[in-house]
Structures are given as structure tokens and as C-alpha cells.
Design a protein around this nucleic acid. Sequence first.
DNA 1: GTCTTGACTAAGC
DNA 2: GGCTTAGCCAAGA
Length: 109
Amino acid sequence: MILAAVRRIPRGKVCTYGNVAEVAGLPRRARLVGTVLRQTPAGRGLPWYRVINAGGRISFPVGSDAYARQRHKLEAEGVVFVGGRVDLRRYGWPQHEERLDELLWAPRS
DNA sequence: GTCTTGACTAAGC
DNA sequence: GGCTTAGCCAAGA
């Protein structure tokens, strides 16, 4: 369910661990999302890099290899970083609670 | 079994 | 915005 949720994040958008958990139907399991992504091999076609923390930042140590990889992937899709963070009001997904309800109700594709 | 860890968060300063 | 502190809960050890 978690991986399915990650796959639904649109290009050029980002989603927080907490929101991924919610969309996956697992409220309050943000850490589990991180655990799953950590264990998931190089998910081909899995937009894992679109998942960031609630602070709008990448959850890897700044300067680390992983940090650079994720950031470049996002910037390549047009996501802009300002002061090491992205504006969730602009790039965050889903945008509104209303949208979230639709997602939970809608059949998975 | 328990104890620790951690790609997390919301709340309080 | 930043830093701390409490919760959180599945995995690992």
C-alpha cells in the first residue's frame, strides 16, 4: 500500500512521509514509510525521491551522497529548493484535505 | 521476551 | 525559520 501511494505522487510534486502513510491508509505511520523505503531495493520506476519530511526537507544528511541524489532528481523535475527546503504549499501533494478524501475513496489505479 | 534505532511529527519555546 | 521534547511503532539486535 505504501509503495502504491508513493507511485501516485505526480511528477514535479513531493509528498511527506506522513501524507504517504495517510494516502496508504496507515495514519500515524510516517516512520514506517521511511522503513519501507529504506528496505526497498532500487525500486525501478518508484519515485521514492518525491518523499520528503514534514519540514519540506530531504531526510538525509546534507552533503551526503543520498542527499545529492534525491535533490538532483527533484530539481530535474522542476522542484525548487530555497534554503535547503521546498515550499510544500506549492509542491506538496496532495494539496488539500479535500483531495485526500477523494484519494482514499477512489479505487486504486 | 526487552531494548535500541530510526528516509518521522506535532507542539512548545 | 531553528532547537527540544514527547510520542510514535515496526525492525533489528
